[in-house]
Protein backbone atom coordinates (compact mmCIF):
# COMPACT_ATOMS: atom_id res chain seq x y z
CA UNK A 1 0.00 0.00 0.00
CA UNK A 2 1.19 3.46 -0.73
CA UNK A 3 2.19 5.61 2.23
CA UNK A 4 -0.16 8.41 1.16
CA UNK A 5 -3.18 6.06 1.11
CA UNK A 6 -2.21 4.53 4.44
CA UNK A 7 -2.00 8.02 5.95
CA UNK A 8 -5.51 8.83 4.77
CA UNK A 9 -6.90 5.60 6.23
CA UNK A 10 -5.06 6.17 9.50
CA UNK A 11 -6.36 9.71 9.79
CA UNK A 12 -9.89 8.47 9.15
CA UNK A 13 -9.51 5.78 11.79
CA UNK A 14 -8.26 8.33 14.31
CA UNK A 15 -11.45 10.33 13.80
CA UNK A 16 -13.43 7.38 15.30
CA UNK A 17 -12.41 8.86 18.68
CA UNK A 18 -15.20 11.39 18.16
CA UNK A 19 -17.74 8.58 18.61
CA UNK A 20 -16.63 8.25 22.21
CA UNK A 21 -16.97 11.99 22.71
CA UNK A 22 -20.50 11.82 21.31
CA UNK A 23 -21.45 9.06 23.74
CA UNK A 24 -19.91 11.00 26.62
CA UNK A 25 -21.71 14.25 25.82
CA UNK A 26 -24.98 12.33 25.43
CA UNK A 27 -24.54 10.68 28.83
CA UNK A 28 -23.70 13.99 30.50
CA UNK A 29 -26.70 15.88 29.13
CA UNK A 30 -29.06 12.92 29.53
CA UNK A 31 -28.13 12.38 33.15
CA UNK A 32 -28.30 16.11 33.84
CA UNK A 33 -31.79 16.26 32.37
CA UNK A 34 -33.04 13.23 34.28
CA UNK A 35 -31.56 14.63 37.48
CA UNK A 36 -33.05 18.04 36.78
CA UNK A 37 -36.48 16.50 36.18
CA UNK A 38 -36.35 14.73 39.55
CA UNK A 39 -35.14 17.75 41.49
CA UNK A 40 -35.58 20.97 39.51
CA UNK A 41 -34.56 23.16 42.46
CA UNK A 42 -31.06 21.66 42.51
CA UNK A 43 -30.64 21.87 38.73
CA UNK A 44 -29.50 25.49 38.52
CA UNK A 45 -26.66 24.91 40.97
CA UNK A 46 -25.24 22.05 38.92
CA UNK A 47 -25.32 23.90 35.61
CA UNK A 48 -21.63 24.97 35.76
CA UNK A 49 -20.68 21.36 36.44
CA UNK A 50 -22.71 20.32 33.38
CA UNK A 51 -20.82 22.74 31.17
CA UNK A 52 -17.49 21.68 32.67
CA UNK A 53 -18.28 18.02 32.00
CA UNK A 54 -19.40 18.85 28.47
CA UNK A 55 -16.17 20.67 27.71
CA UNK A 56 -14.01 17.92 29.22
CA UNK A 57 -15.86 15.16 27.35
CA UNK A 58 -15.70 17.01 24.06
CA UNK A 59 -11.98 17.58 24.42
CA UNK A 60 -11.21 13.84 24.60
CA UNK A 61 -12.75 13.39 21.17
CA UNK A 62 -10.71 16.26 19.83
CA UNK A 63 -7.51 14.55 21.00
CA UNK A 64 -8.35 11.96 18.34
CA UNK A 65 -8.69 14.76 15.81
CA UNK A 66 -5.24 16.03 16.78
CA UNK A 67 -3.86 12.52 16.19
CA UNK A 68 -5.48 12.57 12.75
CA UNK A 69 -3.90 15.93 11.95
CA UNK A 70 -0.49 14.75 13.18
CA UNK A 71 -0.75 11.71 10.90
CA UNK A 72 -1.79 13.84 7.94
CA UNK A 73 0.55 16.79 8.27
CA UNK A 74 3.43 15.97 10.60
CA UNK A 75 4.71 12.71 9.08
Amino acid sequence: MEVEAAKMIGAGLAAIALAGAGVGIGIIFGNYLSGAMRNPSAAQKQFPNLLLGFALAEATGLFGLVIALIILFAF
Partner: peptide, 13 residues
Protein backbone atom coordinates in the same frame (compact mmCIF):
# COMPACT_ATOMS: atom_id res chain seq x y z
CA UNK B 1 -0.10 18.36 27.42
CA UNK B 2 -3.78 17.71 28.06
CA UNK B 3 -4.39 21.28 29.24
CA UNK B 4 -2.82 22.80 26.14
CA UNK B 5 -4.14 20.29 23.60
CA UNK B 6 -7.70 20.68 24.94
CA UNK B 7 -7.79 24.41 24.26
CA UNK B 8 -5.85 24.23 21.00
CA UNK B 9 -7.86 21.34 19.55
CA UNK B 10 -11.19 22.91 20.43
CA UNK B 11 -10.30 26.21 18.82
CA UNK B 12 -8.69 24.69 15.75
CA UNK B 13 -11.44 22.12 15.15
Amino acid sequence: VSLSVRLFANMMA
